[in-house]
Computed example of a mutant assay.
Amino acid sequence: MSAGDDRPPREPDQPNDLEALSARLRDARATRRAEGHQPDGEPAPRSKAEGVAWRLAVEMVSALAVCGFVGWWIDKWLDSSPWGLLIGLLLGGTTGLANAIRVALAVQRDAEAADKTSSPRSGQ
């Protein structure tokens, strides 16, 4: 044992640390499932909604930033200030809005498909 090692020496009859940790994790996961928490690997519904909201925000901001930068660069190149920047921001806003609508419609379509598959048809 080296001088800088603070761990106590392992006794021969002690269980393997990794095996003990794995057993504790299995027990904790089983307890969480029994309490009604989401299974491992499946995000909670709130986190899915937050993910979609962040995606929409990033779509809008990135489209505005990229198109605004391109418009500003064209202004510098052609010395046409402020028209390139204004047109770039207008195109960026339109592109960001179109992307946000496309994403929102896809999310709505997925939610409707999930509702149809999870609930039995009534009246048939």
Results as ranks from 00 to 15, higher is better:
residue 79 D to E: 08
residue 123 G to M: 04
residue 1 M to P: 07
residue 39 P to F: 03
residue 106 A to P: 02
residue 52 V to L: 14
residue 68 G to T: 07
residue 67 C to N: 13
residue 10 R to N: 02
residue 62 S to K: 10
residue 75 D to P: 04
residue 37 H to F: 14
residue 56 L to A: 12
residue 25 L to T: 05
residue 120 P to F: 06
residue 1 M to A: 12
residue 58 V to C: 01
residue 51 G to V: 08
residue 78 L to K: 11
residue 110 D to S: 07
residue 58 V to N: 00
residue 53 A to R: 07
residue 55 R to Q: 12
residue 98 A to E: 03
residue 112 E to Q: 11
residue 102 R to I: 03
residue 56 L to H: 01
residue 65 A to K: 00
residue 59 E to A: 13
residue 16 N to D: 15
residue 51 G to A: 13
residue 22 S to P: 02
residue 46 R to S: 09
residue 90 L to P: 03
residue 71 G to F: 04
residue 82 P to E: 03
residue 119 S to W: 13
residue 11 E to Y: 13
residue 44 A to D: 14
residue 47 S to V: 07
residue 27 D to E: 15
residue 46 R to V: 11
residue 100 A to E: 09
residue 22 S to M: 02
residue 85 L to S: 12
residue 34 A to G: 04
residue 13 D to W: 13
residue 96 G to I: 07
residue 95 T to E: 02
residue 109 R to D: 12
residue 52 V to M: 09
residue 96 G to L: 06
residue 42 E to W: 10
residue 60 M to P: 04
residue 49 A to M: 08
residue 33 R to D: 08
residue 48 K to D: 13
residue 68 G to W: 04
residue 100 A to S: 15
residue 42 E to G: 05
residue 43 P to N: 00
residue 42 E to P: 05
residue 124 Q to M: 00
residue 94 T to A: 15
residue 26 R to M: 01
residue 28 A to H: 11
residue 54 W to A: 12
residue 31 T to D: 11
residue 2 S to I: 05
residue 31 T to H: 07
residue 82 P to I: 01
residue 19 E to A: 11
residue 49 A to L: 14
residue 102 R to T: 09
residue 97 L to C: 04
residue 1 M to Y: 03
residue 65 A to F: 05
residue 36 G to K: 11
residue 42 E to C: 07
residue 116 K to V: 05
residue 43 P to D: 02
residue 118 S to V: 07
residue 59 E to I: 10
